[in-house]
Design a protein around this nucleic acid. Structure first.
Lengths: 194, 194
DNA sequence: TCGATACGAGACGGTGGCGTTTCGCAGGTC
DNA sequence: GACCTGCGAAACGCCACCGTCTCGTATCGA
């Protein structure tokens, strides 16, 4: 990775075009999926010539992977407080808000396309692992404070938290309001009280 | 709906071709998705001429919807015993086994394609509603027997059951063994004991 | 001002998909 | 046997897409 682009003669590449391309790619991918989206459509949506895209990315796959990675690497500071309910609520709300947007539809597409295009799956799996790890840290701290049973299976508990939210996001499509999030949290805490 | 096809002159349509087409369509769709699969590939896989497909279905969309409906309408008798754990286990195992096969990959594709092809989503939503209803009946009977709290929110409880299984199937890809299923069931029952 | 590179627009060749049609043959009813 | 429809194979027209290329213009450093 090159920290600072070396100065090259001629007109520098447009940062505005960079961003417009990534944004348009994510939008198109979210709406149409890998096979359904076209590079022409991305160019039109970004208000950019197709050559401007192919000057940056070697192929359609490259383009999509770059747009996905850009989303994944938007960093997020996971909650690390000492309030179990508040920390869990922050995680679930972040999942809900993050996956309700364009990125969420894109994630749905990745879930489908990962079979035929494994390159796309990698970044997404990294995102999932990152979220799971932050939930796990919250659980471990709660155990240390004696708020949860020490002998629980953290994987199962994490699934119990995240599963219902993803289920509504991906499968049933039912809305996820604050009352729902609190219900999930209360249920799991009740099941794993020490 | 015509119960019995009226006798028509000429050679009758091949039932073997009917079945081969639907099976090949489901396979191709599960692997490639709506945009990615081609009718030519379906014909080749089914060992059938393309004309034989278009004699039965007006379009690619028609074909896919028919293949999906055939899967959805394979009926399944939901458990209706008086053993709460056994009934829930049967539901979760049925979800796991059903969605681990080709049909499961197809379902993932429907989740993705339902945005751009709402026709596909309808049958799938019917399937989801049917599974939810059977879980709900089990919960209601358990409440009547006094095994679960009477004031629980059945929607939340259903999500807590189904969510983790779908989460593993669709998102994390982790295996779903019998121990896992029992852990989910135990956790939820513990959270909603009367 | 000059050279170099980027820009949007759009044409281009090649490929592949959808849906139709034609072909010679197979499998039914009357 | 006469007639009708279905069959697999393959070719077809049409169109959309990918990735390349060319055009005239814009924007940088020297």
């Amino acid at each position: 990775m090159q920290e600072i682009a070396e100065r090259r003669p001629g007109r520098p590449r447009s940062v505005a075009a960079d961003e417009a391309i990534l944004r348009a790619t994510l939008d198109e991918y979210a709406e149409r999926g890998y096979e359904g989206m076209s590079v022409d459509a991305v160019a039109a949506r970004a208000g950019v010539g197709k050559a401007t895209i192919y000057r940056r990315y070697q192929s359609k796959t490259d383009l999509i992977v770059a747009a996905g990675s850009a989303v994944v690497h938007e960093d997020w500071v996971p909650p690390a407080g000492d309030d179990l309910r508040a920390d869990l609520r922050a995680v679930l709300e972040h999942i809900r808000d993050g996956f309700s947007t364009t990125a969420g539809r894109a994630a749905r597409m990745v879930v489908a396309d990962s079979w035929s295009h494994p390159e796309l799956a990698e970044a997404f799996q990294g995102l999932v692992a990152q979220r799971r790890a932050s939930t796990r840290r919250i659980i471990d701290k709660a155990i240390a404070r004696g708020e949860l049973a020490a002998n629980l299976d953290a994987d199962v508990v994490t699934d119990l938290f995240a599963g219902p939210v993803f289920y509504r996001l991906f499968i049933s499509g039912a809305p996820i309001d604050d009352v729902y999030i609190d219900s999930i949290i209360d249920s799991v805490i009740r099941a794993y009280a020490p």
